[in-house]
């Protein structure tokens, strides 16, 4: 049954190869790009969540 579907749905081998190639392309490109980054930039990005504290009205202490 499956063989029949595969044969009549046309050549589906391209799907497996396409999936593999696109995945490795995406993965490879993101690896390449991110490791070409300079450390200052990475540090800046990593610290973004920590640097936005606004001036607090009552100078309250945090919970933790």
């Amino acid at each position: 049954m499956f063989k029949y579907i595969l044969e009549s749905a046309g050549d589906i081998n391209w799907m497996a190869i396409f999936a593999l190639l696109t995945f490795f392309t995406v993965f490879g490109v993101s690896l390449y790009v991110i490791f070409r980054r300079d450390k200052d930039f990475i540090d800046h990005m990593a610290n973004l969540p920590l640097e936005e504290e606004a001036p607090q009205p009552n100078g309250r202490a945090a919970v933790n």
Binding site: F23, F27, V33, I34, I42, A46, L50
Partner: peptide
């Protein structure tokens, strides 16, 4: 403290959504 590896987070993102 900042995330352990910002680089890893980028790879995490692209690989995960793909």
């Amino acid at each position: 403290r900042p995330v352990f590896s910002y680089r890893l987070s980028i790879i995490h993102f692209w690989a995960l959504i793909f």
